[in-house]
Design a protein around this nucleic acid. Sequence first.
DNA 1: CATGAATGAGAATTCATTCAT
DNA 2: AATGAATGAATTCTCATTCAT
Lengths: 203, 203, 203, 203
Amino acid sequence: MAEKDRKDARQRILDASVSLFSRKGFAGVGVREIANEAGVNLAMISYYFNGKTGILKEIIEQFFNLYLPIFIDADDPGKTPEACFRHLIRKIVHFIRENTDLFLLVYNEIPLDVPEVAEIKSRRIGELLERIGSLMMRFGLDPADRAIMAVIGPTLISATLAQFRLRPVMHKIFQVKPDEKYYEHYVDTICTLFLSGVAGLRK
Amino acid sequence: MAEKDRKDARQRILDASVSLFSRKGFAGVGVREIANEAGVNLAMISYYFNGKTGILKEIIEQFFNLYLPIFIDADDPGKTPEACFRHLIRKIVHFIRENTDLFLLVYNEIPLDVPEVAEIKSRRIGELLERIGSLMMRFGLDPADRAIMAVIGPTLISATLAQFRLRPVMHKIFQVKPDEKYYEHYVDTICTLFLSGVAGLRK
Amino acid sequence: MAEKDRKDARQRILDASVSLFSRKGFAGVGVREIANEAGVNLAMISYYFNGKTGILKEIIEQFFNLYLPIFIDADDPGKTPEACFRHLIRKIVHFIRENTDLFLLVYNEIPLDVPEVAEIKSRRIGELLERIGSLMMRFGLDPADRAIMAVIGPTLISATLAQFRLRPVMHKIFQVKPDEKYYEHYVDTICTLFLSGVAGLRK
Amino acid sequence: MAEKDRKDARQRILDASVSLFSRKGFAGVGVREIANEAGVNLAMISYYFNGKTGILKEIIEQFFNLYLPIFIDADDPGKTPEACFRHLIRKIVHFIRENTDLFLLVYNEIPLDVPEVAEIKSRRIGELLERIGSLMMRFGLDPADRAIMAVIGPTLISATLAQFRLRPVMHKIFQVKPDEKYYEHYVDTICTLFLSGVAGLRK
DNA sequence: CATGAATGAGAATTCATTCAT
DNA sequence: AATGAATGAATTCTCATTCAT
C-alpha cells in the first residue's frame, strides 16, 4: 500500500486538478477541493507541488510534452502534403478526445494572468506555433507571408478545439452523437474545409 | 459632476468588470478590485448587481444584445451568399476589435461552471447557433447535414476569435502589426479560407 | 392618498417590525427587510424612528401602555379575589391572543443587551411587577414574603405566555386546536391550577 | 500546553458561544466576538462547526443530551408521585443553576426562525414534551385530556425557568439573594404550588 | 415627505499555506 | 510520507445610516 499509494497520490492530485481546473478555471478551484477529489491530505499539495500554482505549471509542461510530438511526427517528407495534413488532424482530434479536460484547461488558461506560469506558456506556445509554421510551408504557403501564417495556425487550433469547447451546448443544438463515427466524419469535414480553403488562398 | 457620476457608477462597474474578467477570468477577480477600478464603493456592486455573479449575468446579456444583431442583419436576401458572408465576417471582426475584452470574456467564461449563469448561457448560445445555422443554409449547405452544421458554426466563431485570443503571443511570434491594414487583410484571408473551404465541402 | 398614507407609513413600519422581530429577534432583522415588508422607503425608518433601535423603543413603550391597564383594571375591590384573578387571566389571555407577536417580541427581547432600551425595560417591568405584587396581596399572600412574591409573579406571566411561545410545536404534539373553546378551557385550567396552588402555599 | 489546547479549542468555542448567545441572542453575536472570547482563530469556527449555525446546532443537541435524562430518571415507580415530582423539580432547578446560560439560550432561541435548526428543535422538543406527558400521567392526570396536558408541561418548564429569565430585573425588585437557601425555598414553593394546583385540577 | 444612491464599517466565510507531530 | 490543526489574509456580502435631490 505504502509505496504504490505514495506514487499515486501525486498523480491523483494532477488528475483531480485537470478535471477541476478545466471545469471551473484555475482561480475557481480551491486546494481543499483538489485534495478531496484526489483523496489526499490537504498538506500534500504543498508537499508535492509547492502550492496550487505548482500544479498548474506541471500540468502545462506535461501537456506540451504530449502535444508537441504530434506536430513533429506529422512532418513526414515521405507523404504528400495533403496526407500529412489529414494525418495531423486525425492525430490531434484523437489526442483531444483522449485528453479533453487537459486540452481545454491549457487552452482556457493560456490568456490568463497567472504570473508564475507566463514564462512557461509563452515559451511552449512559441515552440508550438513554430512547428505549425513549418508544417504550413509544406502545404505550399509562403512562410514570409506572416499575415497568412498568423491566420492559419491559430485558426486551425481553435477550429479543431471548438468541437470540444462547445460540446455540451452543441450536442443539444445539433443533436449529434459524439461517437467514433461522428469524429471520423468530423476529421474529414475539417480537413476538406481547410485543404480547400488553403488551396483557395494559394489562388 | 454629481449627477453624471451617479448615473455612470453602474456602467463603470460593468466596464471595469469586463476589463478585469477578460484578463484574469471571472473567478480570478475580486469585487474589491472591481470597485477600485471602477472608482465606486464596494457595496455598490451588491446594490446594483446583487453580487459578483450578477455582473457576469448582465455582461453576458449585454454581449448577446450587441452580438446577435450582426448575424440577423447579415442575412440580406438581396446579396449573393458570398457578399453576405464577407459582409458578416467584416462586421464580426469590427465588432471584436471594438469589444475585444468583452468578446474574450464571454468566450472564455462560457464553458466554465458558474451555475447561476448556465441558463443564460445555453439560451443565448442557442439563439446564436441557430442564426449561424440559417446563414449557412444560404451558402448552399444542406441544413439536414447536422454534422457539417456542427462543424462550420463553432469553427467560424473560434477561428475569427483566435486572432484576438492569442494576440499577445502571436504578435511576438509573427511580428505583425494589428493595424487597420492588417485587419483588412485578415478579413480577406479568413473569408477566402472559408469560402473556398465550404465550396470544397459542397464537392 | 398623501395624508393617509403618510400616517400609515409610520404604523406600517411598526407592524412589520413587530412581526419580524418576534419571529427572528431584534438583531436578526435588517432595516431593509422592515422597509420592504412595510412597503416604505428605507430612509423612512431613520426619518420616523431615528434608527432601528428607535423602533424597538417605541414598540416596548406601546406594549406596556396596552398591557399595564389590564392589571390596573383587574384590581376591583368589589369582586372576590378569585373572581378578580379569573377576570385578570381571561383578560391577559385575550390580550396575548390579539397581540401574540407583540407579546412574544417584548418577552423575548427583555433579557437581551440592547443598551439603549435597558432603561425603558427595567422601568416598565418594575411597574408591572409592582402591579402584580399588589394583586397578589389581595389573594391573601403576605407581601413581606418576598421569596414567594418573586416566585408567583414571573411564574404567572411565563406560564400564561408559554402557550403561545411553544404554540407551533405544541399543537403538533398535543393535537389541540387553538380555537375559542380551547382558550376558554385554557383559562379555566390555568386559573384552577394557580388558585389551588396558591391556596396550598397559604397552608 | 500544545496538546491540551488543541483539544480544548472546540469546547472553548462552544463555551464562549453559550455565554454570548444567551446574553445577546444568536443573531446578536458575531463570530469575531466568539473567536476572541474563546481565544481561538476566527477560521476555527468554520473548521470545527462549519459556520455560526453549526455552533448553535451542536449546543442545542448537547443541551437536550443533558436535559432529557433528568426527566427519564425522574420516572421512578418506587416513589410516590409527589416524591417523584419534588425530586424532578429539585433536579431541574439544580440543572438550571449549573447551566443557566445554556438553558436560557436554548429557551430563547427555540422560537426564533433559524431555518437550519428547525428540524433539531421540533424533534428534541417533541421528545421532551412526551417525557413530561408521561410524568404527568403518574400524577393522576388523564393523558387523554390533551388540553390539560398541553397546559401543564409548558407551564412547568417556563415557570421554573422564569426565575432565571428575569433574574437581573427580579432581584432588583424583590431584593432576594439567589443563594443556596433561596433556591431550597424556591423548590419548595414551586412544588407546593404545582402539587396543590394539579390536585385542584383533579377536582 | 419621499426617494435612490452612496458610504464605510462589519458581517460570515474561504483561502492557500504552514507547522508540530 | 502523512496528518489534522492552526493561521492570517482575503474573500463576498450585508449592515445601519446618511445625504442630495
